[in-house]
Write a protein that binds this DNA or RNA. Sequence first.
DNA 1: GGTAGACCTGGACGC
DNA 2: GCGTCCAGGTCTACC
Length: 299
Amino acid sequence: MSTRLTLRVPSDYVLKRDVCSYGYFHLAPNTWDPARETLARVLDLSDGAATLIVAQPEDVPGAPLRVQVDRGLSRTAQGEAKRALSRMLRLEEEDLGAFHAVDPRWRASGRGRIFRSPTLFEDLVKTVTSCNVAWPSTRMMNRRLCEVINPAFPRPTQMARRRPATLRARCRVGYRDVRLVELAKLAAAGSIDDRWFEDPSNDDDAVYSALLELPGIGPYAASNMLQLLGRYSRLAMDSEAMRHGREVLGMEGTDTQVRRAIEQHYAQFGDHRFRSYWFELWTDHEKHKGPAWTWPVPA
DNA sequence: GGTAGACCTGGACGC
DNA sequence: GCGTCCAGGTCTACC
């Protein structure tokens, strides 16, 4: 027996646009099907794993999502699945008006939501595995973590039990092995308090500082985690940002000079600067490769 | 506070 | 097919 769920979404929500808005839609255990325009995802629910396929059958903004589950779900599990999807799809970010008021370029297209993971821990691991490495390797690491530890993505307790050498040899995470296990141990021990990180009454600087304390998290990763936490006041400055500054914005000079120029350029967007930067970069990719929801699934 | 070098992997390149 | 070089962000040691 299977379960079918219906998910209400904000009136401007477009599944294909808002899922295919950040590279994590191509990282295991997420799978985007460009032909069917559906997101498949294995979730770890309290009564076991379940595979969900999310679609938006009516191709109009705000149309409800249909979620097909590969087995029957209890009421409790249905609630868990909905909460997980809500976090991934940013359904709780109802009002994009403040962002569009600061940067009206995205009002017509409705851009504003950036895809993420069902848990803070998964976002941390995905961010650490995206550091100091080319994108195909990030894809490999996440795929192997799912194949070796848990198809629905490793839970902190599962990863904390693994030896670093196992992660290195079987999941190809390289020198990140110790950092990932330490991160998992902290999460498993409850030392990474999701609610504190997500609490809007804590200011961005405090959250940023706390993120920097975590193993494997440096300035870039902490800034990226901020946006994944719905805090867009910092730019995540990596080589891609530098490339964007030079090639798209025409900035020149040393890395330090370009970095400062990028910071100055996006300061006009205030607390929304990451989104302004990100959608500029993302739409530039789409200008060359077509809409992200049509991109072929990488090998 | 700033900087140099190690860390690990996969891809590009030259032979 | 093999060896070498390079890119990528974090971390530590050192000045």
